[in-house]
Write a protein that binds this DNA or RNA. Sequence first.
DNA 1: GGAGTGTATCACATGTTATGATACACCCAT
DNA 2: ATGGGTGTATCATAACATGTGATACACTCC
Lengths: 131, 131
Amino acid sequence: MEERRVGSLRFRIDFSQPIYEQIVQQFQSSVVKGEIERGTKIPSVRELAQALHVTPNTVMHAYQEMERSGLTETRRGQGTFITSSQEQIEQLRSKLAAVAVREFLQKMNDLGYSGQAIFRLIQDEERDETP
Amino acid sequence: MEERRVGSLRFRIDFSQPIYEQIVQQFQSSVVKGEIERGTKIPSVRELAQALHVTPNTVMHAYQEMERSGLTETRRGQGTFITSSQEQIEQLRSKLAAVAVREFLQKMNDLGYSGQAIFRLIQDEERDETP
DNA sequence: GGAGTGTATCACATGTTATGATACACCCAT
DNA sequence: ATGGGTGTATCATAACATGTGATACACTCC
């Protein structure tokens, strides 16, 4: 699927994963990297749905997940906003990172890698990515 | 779900993931860690199905994935065997590890972590796991 | 030939994901 | 107060993945 724009946001959606998950991840990423300021109003359910060529229900699903995780605050009748709490954002970021690390180490362990061997693989990969 | 034994193998299956995926992963892990020798015959589709309280079709699905990935060789009428090629096993192990590393780094990057920060998180996590 | 293998193909059920449509509830500016 | 823009709830429908249960076939070895 091509890249879709809505306001200053850019979305790239494909079919390898649930669409609502991708929406959540792309907001998470943008917020955590500081590309969206805290407190910002994000597109309405209907607006984003139209921009992404997707049903409002799908966007709704994503927005509900984002509120549950504390990434956004929704004000009925007004819209959905990125949380204004820097602490909330940091907390979410740390939590997501911790989960990712834990799952990764578990997987590597299952494959029989540990300690230095893991670091070496990461360094190799980073060397490939950023030569 | 409790732990199930069949021969010298131990299986722990839950419902958080597709059953056939878990079967594949547990064979991968056992082989890669050397807990199953190469060339070994693994349980028949029906036998493992009975042991895990699962349909033969589900086990079949797992076994077909394992053959596609090169982990096993199936001989019709005889059974399914762990590949006897050490090289094949090493290759699979490296490939799975590379995929895991790549996905992990991508995820961490989306969260705004890179380089040393990632190493720090891993070390923290390992410290927690093995004090 | 029979027992034990893998393989193929049904029908069926369930849960997730997504669509499409409709209606309601709330807030704010006019 | 009314209207337009919000989020929310609910329905029917569909496609797909996963798993069950059953049956039949093909192959290998004793």
